[in-house]
Design a protein around this nucleic acid. Structure first.
Lengths: 373, 373
DNA sequence: CCACCGTATGAATCAGCCC
DNA sequence: GGGGCTGATTCATACGGTG
């Protein structure tokens, strides 16, 4: 067990900074009731099959590392409950824990938390602006990950900076869905060969929101699966202290160099979490869902010369061809492209034809506000 | 156990429509491998403490009905695993199940699904445009619920209408996050006193997306916690058959009246968009048989850098190797796989190169009627 | 220097049929 | 049930090269 103290602030015990070694072994040596917050990004137990090819026949670089392989659910559960129980012991009475995962593992983690006596505060959805598509067309695009925020127990009163979150979100309460891009571009750590240094590096914006919401400056944050140190980098930036545990010496080295380059800075911290609001996209299907049109209704072009029928799946049927409002509009005009929103019109009860874009504007009015990254 | 058949279509066994009685008792009497899809909105086990007051001291009408109270997690788990196991038995081999919940219960349900042998396809996030705010300012606004879509087992190939979902979403893959308003306004069922008839009525838009995505017209859908019958209402509208189980006679009465008033949408509009996968297979030899190409003709890649000759048996000859359009295309590119229909091009008399897929489409046009989806 | 285009890539339980 | 063949399938973003 090696310790390299990164933070310059007073430490309540010697081990602060990055600790290289086995997560469980190190956790067991840590003192009880000493940490304010745990953020954990454990192995997801993805259980990938063979290789996956994109439509252009290139290979997807999936996560098939040894650290993500478990014999079965029971093995994964034993591992999860062991480190979660240690974290609970290490947390201060009003401490809290975050854990992140996908449908492969998050249900098992949530169940374990409840069984161990944690008290769930929220589940939070990280909506990815740019997820990897589903290449084979077999499922919904897996466009989110789930975080669980849990207090040490039912009686705990964990930190929640309600007003900071509200200010961050343009004076609206912060919701449980967070729209944040995946980690890429210059933020993504790369090795000498230009390959990604870690397969699952999390975006700093995600950690920033977690730490801004549920810690105070000077708080001690523990990350038992430190990886390349996003938690440490953001903690240092936002003037929180941290302990990171990581088994792989290469990851430790990458994290150490990364964090050393961070300058704690209020201005930068504020810049990092600036709120923006994106105008949400409205697919045509939503117009049907709101009951503004019904399956079987007829749409027209502006001159009412072209007619198409609305199908239950929000596709259009015109002259034997079927597709989206855009593709059918293009075909009906003999063109390569078409904006279906302005091309197609619906019959209003009194006022004659109107473009379906009117309906889209109605939907937007009722869509409420979502915080964007 | 009382049965009122609502659907007019042929039923595979007597019990179709709404069944009043205990969920587990009725499930145990249902035949195995008889249902295409289960949609379940079980009790959430909300564990509300006392009453919750808004800032203006009005009381929040929370869910504190007897059916939502369980002694502890173990009791809730026993109940969950019992009805889930019965549903799994009742599902056809390629059947699937949806379940909806919040952080109070969804982790336990997901764990139970995995332990019982279900195979998770996606978790889907229902993002509410208009969630109830967090009145105390102690947590994030709980702005979503979680649905799990699970196949009966790992080998099952459940229905997924990929192309319908894509058309619905303006030609982009449907993602795992769905933005849909909560059920309110005229859609919300109310009793004679104007109070909401059911505390957790789901929006029809949510069910419509579930049924459009994962069932075909005529499929049989089972809802073991029918409530006021949103599943049945949408199933009837979209021309799916349904079985709903509900214990409370008042809910049964409300659901029955509600569904009776539904007019199924136009049958043609309910049909699914045809996917390429469902098109009949056309062997390349048929293109030769129709005289669209002749033995000896030359095919090219799009850039006319690779040339292959068409043999009389519809194999291709390229650079000494011979095989199908697919295998030769793969070899010519040095790749493991290739779709010969889109890779190989033929010389048109006037318009230059065109993919041989054009010829396949010509053949399909002459192949007569296909079975409707 | 900017516009445009081609290429690379991200926590992925990613095909279906016939022999 | 396994092996082999047919042939269906991607969105947002970053980056580098070219004009």
């Amino acid at each position: 067990m090696r310790s390299c103290v990164v933070s310059g602030e007073a430490a309540p015990f010697a081990a602060e900074g990055i600790l290289q070694g086995d997560c469980l072994e190190i956790l067991r040596r840590m003192p009880s009731a000493s940490v304010d917050l745990v953020f954990a990004d454990p192995p997801y137990n993805l259980q990938l099959g063979g290789e996956l090819l994109r439509p252009n026949n290139t290979r997807v670089d999936g996560v098939d590392h040894a650290w993500d392989r478990f014999a079965d659910f029971a093995t994964y559960d034993r591992f999860s409950r062991a480190w979660l129980a240690e974290c609970r012991r290490i947390l201060k009475p009003n401490g809290a824990l975050w854990v992140i995962g996908t449908y492969h593992n998050i249900f098992r983690l949530g169940t374990a938390l409840q069984d161990l006596g944690f008290w769930l505060m929220n589940d939070v959805i990280w909506l990815k602006t740019n997820p990897m598509p589903n290449f084979k067309g077999t499922r919904f695009t897996n466009a989110h990950e789930t975080l669980i925020w849990a207090a040490r127990d039912e009686k705990a009163r964990p930190t929640f900076n309600y007003d900071s979150m509200k200010a961050f979100n343009d004076d609206l309460q912060m919701r449980s869905d967070w729209l944040i891009p995946i980690c890429s571009g210059p933020e993504r750590l790369r090795d000498d060969g230009g390959r990604k240094a870690h397969p699952t590096q999390k975006p700093e914006a995600l950690l920033a929101r977690v730490l801004m919401a549920t810690t105070k400056p000077g708080d001690l944050v523990l990350d038992p699966f430190f990886g390349t140190g996003t938690t440490g980098a953001v903690a240092k930036l936002l003037r929180r202290r941290f302990i990171g545990i990581e088994r792989d010496p290469d990851y430790v080295a990458a994290a150490s160099a990364r964090i050393a380059a961070i300058e704690p800075c209020d201005a930068k911290a504020a810049a990092l979490i600036t709120s923006k609001r994106a105008e949400p996209r409205v697919p045509f299907g939503m117009v049907l869902e709101r009951g503004m049109l019904r399956p079987g209704d007829v749409l027209f072009d502006a001159k009412a010369e072209i007619r198409a029928q609305v199908m239950a799946d929000a596709s259009l049927m015109w002259n034997g061809t079927r597709g989206s409002i855009h593709s059918v509009g293009a075909k009906a005009q003999g063109r390569g492209a078409c904006n279906g929103w302005t091309f197609w019109h619906f019959e209003q009860p009194k006022d004659g034809l109107a473009p379906i874009d009117l309906l889209r504007m109605e939907v937007r009015k009722t869509m409420g506000m979502r915080a964007a990254a």
